[in-house]
Nucleic acid binder design. Sequence first.
DNA 1: CTTGAAATGTTAGCGACTAACATTTCTAGG
DNA 2: CCTAGAAATGTTAGTCGCTAACATTTCAAG
Lengths: 186, 186
Amino acid sequence: MATPRTLRTRARILDAALDLFERQGYDATTVNQIADAAGITPMTFFRHFPTKDAVLVTDPYDPLIAQAVGAQPADLPPLERTRLGMLAALGDITPTEDATARRRVALVTQSPSLRAAVAIGTEATQEAIVEQLVADGVDPLDAAIAASACLAATTAALLAWGTAPSDVTLADLVHRALAQLALEKP
Amino acid sequence: MATPRTLRTRARILDAALDLFERQGYDATTVNQIADAAGITPMTFFRHFPTKDAVLVTDPYDPLIAQAVGAQPADLPPLERTRLGMLAALGDITPTEDATARRRVALVTQSPSLRAAVAIGTEATQEAIVEQLVADGVDPLDAAIAASACLAATTAALLAWGTAPSDVTLADLVHRALAQLALEKP
DNA sequence: CTTGAAATGTTAGCGACTAACATTTCTAGG
DNA sequence: CCTAGAAATGTTAGTCGCTAACATTTCAAG
C-alpha cells in the first residue's frame, strides 16, 4: 500500500508546493498551480493530500506524547503530568530536524487559515492526552484544561520561533515554553 | 452608520442561521439556505457577516482583558499576571449571559471548522495581552507563551462546558480553568 | 413629493473540494 | 517477452464559500 510510484508523485507534489508557497505565498498559490508544477491533475493532488493545507500541516507526534504523559507519576496534578510528559516526548528533538521544520513553520505563520489548520491538528493530540489522563481517574474538564494549556504554550513558542528567527533549537524552545507552566519556580 | 434597517436584517439573518444550524447542523447548512430563510440574497448575507462562521464566532472581550492584565502588579511572572488579569476581566460574568452563550458554544463544538474559527478569533486577544506585557519589559516569547496558555485553558473549559452540559456558571468555569495554572497550590 | 444615499439585487466568476466513470501505467505471473 | 489485473491517474461535471462591478430598490429627510 506504499508503492514507489505513489511515494514519487507525493514527493513531487510536496516539492512543487513548498517551492510555490515560498515564492508567492500560501494563499496566492492555487492547487491548480501546484498540480501544473508537479505535472499532474488537481484531482490527483487531492488523492494524495486531503486538503491544500495538509501539505504543510502534519502532526506525527500524537501517540508518542500521549504515551509519555501516561508514563509520568499518576499522583501528580494533571498539568504537571502533561508538562513532564511532553517534555519527555519532545525535549530531545535532534537539531537536524530543525532546518526542514523551520521552513514549514515560517510558512504556517504567514496565513491565518494555516494556523487554523494547525489548531485542528493539535486537537487530535489533545484528545489523546485527555484520554490518557481520564483513564487514570482525572476529571475530563481538568484534563482538557491541562492538555490544551501545555499544547498552546509550545505551539505559541513554535510560531514565535518561525516569525523571529533565532538560533535556538527546537528542543530548547519546548523546554522554555513548558518551564513557564511549572508549578513551582526553581 | 447603524440604521434601523441594517439592524433588522442582521437580526433576521442571525435568527435564521441559528435556527438552521440547530436543526440540521452547521456544515449541512449552506449560506443559500440561510439567505432564503431570512428572505434575502446570499450576497446580502456576506455584506452583514464577512464569513459563514462569523454568525457564531465573535469576541468582544479583547480590550477589557488586555487592560486588566496590564493592571496587575508588574513584578509578577508573566503567566501569573495574565492569569490574574483574565480572572479579573472574566470572573464575574452575569448568569443572564449564560443562556445565549450556551447555544452558541454548543454549536461551535459541533464542527472542527468552527473551533478553528474560534482559535483564530482569540489570536487578537492574545496579541493584545502580549502587547501589554511586552510594554512592561517582558520578553515577547515568554509573553506569547503565558497568554496562549491562559486563553487555551479557558477556551478548552468553555468547549467542554458546551458539550457536556452542567449547571456550572460561566464565571465558575473560568475560575476553575485558571486555578489549574496557578503557580502555587492553595 | 422628491431626492439622494443606504441597502439590496444581479450577474459572473474564482478557488477548494467531491463523485462517477473512463483511461493509462506499472507490476507480477506465465 | 508478454499479458492480465490492479493501482494510479485523468475527465467531466458539479457544489459551496466567497468576491467584484454594476444596476436597482428602499427609505428618510428636506
